[in-house]
Measured scan of single mutants.
Amino acid sequence: MSIQHFRVALIPFFAAFCLPVFAHPETLVKVKDAEDQLGARVGYIELDLNSGKILESFRPEERFPMMSTFKVLLCGAVLSRVDAGQEQLGRRIHYSQNDLVEYSPVTEKHLTDGMTVRELCSAAITMSDNTAANLLLTTIGGPKELTAFLHNMGDHVTRLDRWEPELNEAIPNDERDTTMPAAMATTLRKLLTGELLTLASRQQLIDWMEADKVAGPLLRSALPAGWFIADKSGAGERGSRGIIAALGPDGKPSRIVVIYTTGSQATMDERNRQIAEIGASLIKHW
């Protein structure tokens, strides 16, 4: 067993022997301040990774656009098919120029040779490549099948209805392509620590998230040296922004954090800054 596999296998073990965790309302004060600064709703939840206990939450059962955070769930569904012998990570998928959609920095470079399922998941999570996500959605049967996968996990809230990039439209009061912070946090925890996926697939999923290259201005910008984070960000229309993450000190994750916002007129930089400040408060009061 590799060191990384050992780390993920012992996530519940280490967490069980940690000192009790206590909620700190100071972080919620910052979440509410972010709402004021952005002029928009902000949803927040913080779960203990081992027990699933909610440590703090704000608007945990209000719907927010998922945006690209759905790509972690998508690759979880792909990995479940791999575990069941219905898919192979090494299978190569070929596609054409007509398949390319807006923001496809990886797939646009491989029109000639195609990409493997493993490479597509890596591109979808680490670079948020939209064509990679659409190609992977095709392998599982489309958005409705991802929703069905989530329902089978016990998540009857999260739903995907459309493809990239239309799913980022974020129309107010439109339930399409949305989740709730509580539902997303619980589902992410199941994917990373539950028995739904094999140990190898859980490790692969967290490795992809740990290698995320496009979430630097968010929670990662607030992390002290030595902290662990595996995350996936999302951005959408109407001032929408979000991030889902597993993080913790001492090089291992111990909490799940989900943050979503929508309806702001603020710039992307300002949305990023507010999420980073929430992260800084979380870490300060850990």
Rank of each mutant, 00 (worst) to 15 (best):
I256Q: 02
D269M: 05
N134A: 08
V214H: 13
G242W: 00
G216S: 08
D33H: 06
G52F: 10
W163V: 07
V101H: 04
F149G: 13
K213L: 04
P60Q: 04
T261H: 10
A276G: 11
E119G: 14
M66V: 13
T69C: 09
G226S: 06
L136R: 00
L120N: 02
E62G: 09
E166W: 13
I244S: 12
T193H: 15
T178M: 03
R91C: 14
D174G: 09
V82C: 13
I54G: 08
D174C: 05
R273I: 05
N168D: 07
M66K: 00
Y103T: 14
L135S: 10
G52C: 03
Q274G: 07
C75V: 06
G239L: 01
T139S: 14
Y95T: 05
V29N: 10
I259W: 05
I243N: 03
V78R: 00
M66H: 08
Q88M: 11
T267L: 08
I93M: 07
L79M: 14
N50H: 10
Q37P: 07
S128H: 01
G251I: 15
V101S: 07
S80W: 14
V31N: 02
V117C: 14
V157S: 08
P253E: 05
E166Y: 13
P181W: 01
L74R: 00
G43A: 07
R41G: 09
S221P: 11
S233H: 01
V101A: 10
T198W: 06
K213N: 07
W286P: 03
I171M: 15
S57T: 12
K30I: 07
T112I: 15
T116M: 10
S96P: 09
P224A: 06
E169M: 10
R238G: 08
S96A: 06
L223I: 15
S254N: 10
E87D: 13
I275G: 01
A132W: 01
P224Y: 04
D129K: 00
W286I: 09
L55A: 10
M180F: 15
A34N: 03
Q88C: 06
H156I: 09
T126P: 03
V258E: 00
A225Y: 15
T116G: 08
G242Y: 01
A183T: 13
L282E: 13
D99M: 13
E46R: 08
G239D: 02
K109G: 13
V214M: 14
P249M: 07
A246P: 01
L137W: 11
I54N: 14
S264M: 03
D269S: 14
I229S: 03
T139I: 10
Q204L: 08
R189M: 12
T107G: 09
P249F: 07
H110D: 14
G52R: 11
K252N: 15
M153P: 01
H151S: 06
A200H: 06
H94S: 07
D269I: 05
T267N: 09
E62R: 05
C121D: 01
R63M: 08
T107K: 01
E270V: 03
R238F: 15
G142F: 02
N173H: 10
L38G: 10
G216I: 08
M268L: 11
M115N: 05
I229T: 03
A215T: 15
L205F: 04
W286R: 03
N168F: 00
L146Y: 04
R118Q: 15
A182G: 12
D231Y: 10
E166D: 10
H110I: 04
V117E: 03
S240P: 02
E35M: 13
I45K: 01
M115S: 04
N134T: 07
T138W: 14
I93A: 14
A84L: 13
T139Q: 13
P172W: 10
P65L: 03
A235F: 02
D177Y: 01
R202Y: 05
V72W: 02
S96I: 13
R220N: 04
T139V: 11
H151L: 06
N50W: 09
G248M: 00
V72G: 03
W208C: 07
Q274N: 11
D113S: 04
T138G: 13
M209N: 01
L196S: 10
S221C: 03
A183Y: 14
P65K: 13
S80P: 02
A182P: 08
Y260Q: 03
G248Y: 02
F64D: 01
E56N: 10
L247M: 12
H151P: 05
L89S: 10
D48W: 03
E145H: 12
L136T: 07
G114T: 11
T267I: 08
K284C: 12
A280K: 15
Q203K: 04
N152I: 07
C75E: 01
P65D: 01
M127S: 09
V157W: 12
E210C: 07
V72N: 00
R273H: 04
P65I: 14
L191Y: 11
M115D: 02
E175D: 10
G279A: 08
E169Y: 05
L205E: 02
L219H: 06
R118A: 14
G279C: 06
E108T: 13
L146H: 03
P172M: 11
R91H: 06
A246Q: 15
E61V: 14
R273S: 10
M153H: 06
K190C: 12
T158Y: 02
V117A: 12
I259Q: 00
M180K: 14
R91D: 12
T267K: 10
A40K: 05
T131W: 05
G52N: 13
T69R: 01
K252T: 09
G142V: 02
Q265S: 08
R92W: 14
A77C: 05
L219P: 05
R159Q: 10
H110W: 15
V117F: 05
E166H: 14
V31Q: 00
H24Y: 09
D207W: 11
D174P: 02
R81M: 08
T107F: 02
I125C: 08
H110K: 08
Q265H: 09
L79V: 11
N130D: 06
V29F: 13
K53S: 14
G43I: 01
A280P: 02
G52P: 13
